[in-house]
């Protein structure tokens, strides 16, 4: 029995608390490796990793690329701008084409919820979801969990507020699942127009006033809000949003004195977060990026072990 009994990493939904711990523990080792002088390991040696991004992302793609290279994989990036998907090829044809090149790890981001799972049914390799629509972004939730654990010494029985565009955020969904599975008290804070329908049944506490939601929190997790939603579609204006939901020093003072501040990036300074807070000593935003590489190394390593075991059998 594998320590991580999964073919793919499609979402936190499929993981048990034990699986989550397995990723975090291995990622801790890789975090140490990444801080050393020689950053090379050979867990993925001989394997081919393709990063297939239907949606542009500099940061996540770079993180997966570095993670793969540090583990010795041959990494190839394919972004939608240069692919034939623009020429009308369907997702499934793209999957079949890539599959014929015999990759071992396929890292996929797609703008439609469920698209990565659909693709995973059509290929023989391990698929990692790097974000699908508004659905899930599992490695982000895992790197957030690792960052929290490193600062709080545990990843349970914490009060964690997620604040911002909950309705449209896959980061929020994966984090609600992950932090909930690890038995934390999860709060979401957003204007009603940025809360998904049925949020009252997600097992989280819901706040529309940020001051109330931040009270006594151990962790404050801010989300990025897209500009078009700030122009009257969901929120009247940037300045009113910042006034009500932007994280300032005053609002942060309502959380516990040792509360940490997180953001998945890229940040809109002065929109959802005051630059002074983003750069303050309680901010762990840079460390999240660092843990991102470690978590992705761990996730790919675990999937590659299963892949090898399957091929040996």
């Amino acid at each position: 029995m594998s320590a991580f009994p999964h073919r793919h990493l499609l979402g936190i939904h499929d993981l048990s608390p034990f699986d989550i711990r397995a990723v975090l523990d291995l990622a801790e080792d890789y975090a140490r490796l990444n801080q050393s002088h020689d950053k090379h390991a050979d867990a993925l040696r001989g394997l081919t990793q393709i990063n297939l991004f239907f949606e542009n992302s500099t940061r996540t793609q770079a993180s997966f690329e570095i993670a793969g290279k540090r583990l010795g994989a041959d990494v190839m990036n394919m972004s939608v701008g240069t692919s034939s998907v623009r020429k009308g090829e369907t997702l499934i044809d793209t999957a079949a084409t890539l599959n014929a090149m015999r990759p071992d790890l396929l890292v996929v981001r797609h703008h439609n919820s469920g698209a990565v799972a659909l693709l995973s049914e059509k290929v023989n390799c391990a698929v990692l979801n790097a974000g699908d629509g508004r659905h899930e972004h599992p490695t982000q939730a895992l790197l957030d969990a690792l960052t929290i654990r490193r600062h709080k010494g545990r990843i349970q029985k914490l009060t964690i507020a997620i604040c911002g565009d909950i309705a449209n955020s896959r980061v929020a969904r994966s984090n609600m699942l992950c932090l909930g599975k690890m038995e934390n008290r999860v709060r979401v804070i957003a204007p009603p127009t940025l809360l998904p329908a049925g949020i009252d049944r997600f097992g989280v506490e819901v706040f529309t006033e940020m001051e109330e939601g931040l009270k006594d929190c151990d962790v404050v997790m801010m989300l990025r809000i897209q500009n078009e939603r700030l122009e009257g579609q969901a929120v009247p204006s940037t300045r009113e949003y910042f006034h009500r939901y932007g994280l300032t020093e005053d609002k942060l003072a309502l959380a516990r004195p040792d509360a940490i501040v997180m953001h998945p990036g890229p940040m809109n300074r002065g929109v959802e977060i005051d630059p002074a807070v983003a750069d303050c000593e309680r901010s762990v935003i840079r460390e999240q990026v660092e843990m991102g590489v470690a978590v992705r190394m761990a996730a790919m390593d675990l999937l590659a072990r299963n892949l090898r075991a399957e091929r040996m059998a």
């Binding site: 629509g133 969904r173 998904p196 329908a197 949020i199």
Partner: peptide, 15 residues
């Protein structure tokens, strides 16, 4: 249809 299920799937929904 909007509700918990569609929200969990991350599908754009209408009530």
């Amino acid at each position: 249809t909007s509700g918990e299920f569609a929200s969990r799937l991350g599908l754009p929904s209408v009530g």
